[in-house]
Simulated assay, not measured.
Amino acid sequence: MTRKSAFAPFAFPDTRVLILGSLPGEASLKAARYYAHPQNQFWRLVGGMIGREELASLDYEDRLSALITAGIGVWDVLASAVRPGSLDAAIREAEHAPLTELIATLPQLRAVAFNGATAARIGRKLLADAPVELVDLPSSSPAYAAMPLAEKRRRWLELREFLS
């Protein structure tokens, strides 16, 4: 089985909120883009959070520009893992991302948000001593259907306080 690797971190010195997933899924890896699966709600949730409801319909580069303007960075808690398919439950032989090293390069960082339970479980251990707020979010993944989109949106909107 082949090892899958995360993308490079999308973060910059003005990042105020860093959103961490677990590891890119098949659609994202194939497209070489964060949150590329058309049913993933990430871009809709972030768009609502930053007041850019149209974010999901923009070209990928324009989405990234909107994240920069809003002070949002994106990465994953895992650098690589063996995983058939895209489900977090299938992750094996995980290698953690160097999160503390990245955070040390982000002087404006106010919060790290974990996109889903797997990201939170791993990330909270790695960042237990981080000098920022740690926020657990419901997963934007289409595989997490237990929570209605309206409730996911409400929870994601709570990140706005860290962006101002």
Rank of each mutant, 00 (worst) to 15 (best):
M49A: 12
V77M: 03
R110D: 03
T69Q: 15
A79H: 05
G48E: 09
V46D: 06
L99Y: 11
A90Q: 13
R44M: 09
A66C: 10
A89F: 07
A117V: 14
V112C: 01
L64I: 02
V112D: 00
G51A: 07
N115C: 02
F42M: 05
A89Q: 10
R121L: 12
A81I: 00
G51N: 06
A117R: 14
A89V: 13
A70R: 13
S80H: 05
R83L: 11
S57R: 02
G73W: 02
R92S: 11
E54R: 09
T105D: 13
E101C: 09
V46I: 15
S80V: 04
I68E: 14
L99W: 09
V77A: 04
R110V: 00
I72S: 04
L87A: 14
L45Y: 01
E101A: 14
D59G: 07
A56D: 12
G73E: 05
E54Y: 08
L78Q: 02
D76A: 07
A90R: 08
A97H: 04
R83G: 08
P107G: 07
S80M: 04
S80E: 14
S65W: 11
G116K: 08
L106F: 01
T100W: 07
A81Q: 00
A90W: 08
R44G: 04
L78F: 04
G71N: 05
T69D: 15
G48N: 13
A119C: 08
R83Q: 15
G51K: 07
E95R: 07
I68R: 15
A117N: 09
M49I: 07
Q108R: 15
L64R: 00
I68V: 14
E53K: 13
I91D: 01
I72L: 09
S86E: 01
A66G: 06
R52Y: 03
W75G: 00
A56V: 09
N115S: 01
L64H: 00
G48I: 04
S65D: 14
N115K: 01
W43R: 03
R44P: 04
A117L: 11
L87G: 10
L109T: 11
A66L: 06
A79V: 03
A119K: 10
T100D: 13
R44D: 15
A113I: 04
T100F: 11
A111L: 12
G47D: 04
A56C: 08
G73H: 04
A97M: 05
I72E: 06
A117D: 14
R63L: 02
A94R: 01
P98M: 10
D59Q: 10
E53L: 12
P98W: 10
H96N: 12
E101Y: 12
V82P: 00
E101W: 10
V82L: 03
R52G: 03
Y60E: 08
S86V: 02
L109Y: 10
G48V: 07
G71R: 06
A120C: 09
A70L: 13
I91P: 01
W43V: 05
P107I: 09
R121H: 10
D76H: 14
G51W: 08
E54I: 05
A94I: 00
I68H: 14
I103H: 03
A56P: 09
T105K: 15
G85P: 06
